[in-house]
């Protein structure tokens, strides 16, 4: 790898145009155009919500950042921006390293396909070739611990089993940067132990973990740094030992 694994976010602002159910109707849109008037300023009637404003963040290899904040504070938006899905309205996001985002359990999951097929599909999305997936299939299958269930359609799985499948498939890609929303708490105790081991291995490989969660114990377990989001603005990146102070602030 030519570059060190790193994340660098400068002055990141993201605004969502919110297209209400109304705004999506062509009739309203056309009516507005023909009637004239409000078009330019209000961006065709869409309201904008500022999801993140002026976020700065620098992470190096080995950093495990926890994101805390109330619902709607921008945690998931930041994770999605880091995954490359959301374009910044201002500022830049620069990520060196292969990114794996585990934000939505259902990514690339086809409920009527088998566990094996879903691992294949998800692996393809993550950038593996069919051959690479086949060569790792046994290992991924073992890790899920789902055994014969892998040959069954995913719709027969429980939420915890789906979490196992998704986590195994997503972390099978040798990612340098792992972005996670808090659903990891879904699996049972055994699985949590396995997931924990795998996450630690990832961090040992000089990767970066960004984990959004409300569970402070979980954050203390995985993270060495923490950042608080509040209405789209971010605190400084702080050491996890100062978590209480950050929460009190």
């Amino acid at each position: 790898m030519s570059h060190q694994v790193s994340i660098s976010v400068t002055d990141l602002s993201i605004r969502f145009p919110v297209y209400g159910v109304d705004a999506k109707s062509l009739k309203k849109h056309l009516a507005r155009v023909t009637v004239g008037g409000r078009l330019g300023s209000s961006l065709a009637g869409a309201t904008e919500v500022t999801a993140l404003s002026n976020v700065n963040l620098k992470l190096r290899a080995g950093d495990r950042l926890g994101l805390i904040g109330h619902n709607g504070s921008g945690k998931t938006t930041l994770l999605r921006a880091l995954s490359g899905a959301y374009e910044p309205d201002e500022g830049t996001i620069d990520v060196h390293g292969r990114i794996a985002a585990l934000l939505d359990l259902g990514l690339g999951i086809d409920p009527s396909a088998t566990g094996y097929d879903n691992i294949r599909l998800r692996g393809r999305i993550a950038g593996l070739s069919s051959k690479e997936i086949d060569s790792r299939m046994d290992e991924i299958g073992d890790f899920t611990g789902l055994g014969p269930f892998l040959a069954m359609p995913v719709k027969t799985y429980s939420a915890g089993m789906q979490a196992r499948l998704a986590f195994a498939a997503a972390t099978a890609v040798e990612a340098d940067v792992l972005l996670m929303d808090e659903w990891i708490a879904v699996g049972d105790a055994d699985f949590q132990k396995l997931a924990h081991k795998r996450l630690l291995k990832l961090v040992e490989r000089a990767g970066i973990l960004v984990l959004a969660s409300h569970d402070l114990d979980l954050l203390r377990l995985y993270c060495n740094k923490v950042m608080r989001l509040e209405g789209g603005t971010a605190s400084k990146v702080t050491d996890i030992r100062k978590l209480e102070e950050l929460l009190a602030a």
Partner: peptide, 12 residues
């Protein structure tokens, strides 16, 4: 815009 190991997104 992305190679496997580098992703850049800007507000430009």
């Amino acid at each position: 815009m992305d190679t496997a190991t580098h992703m850049l997104r800007t507000g430009r």
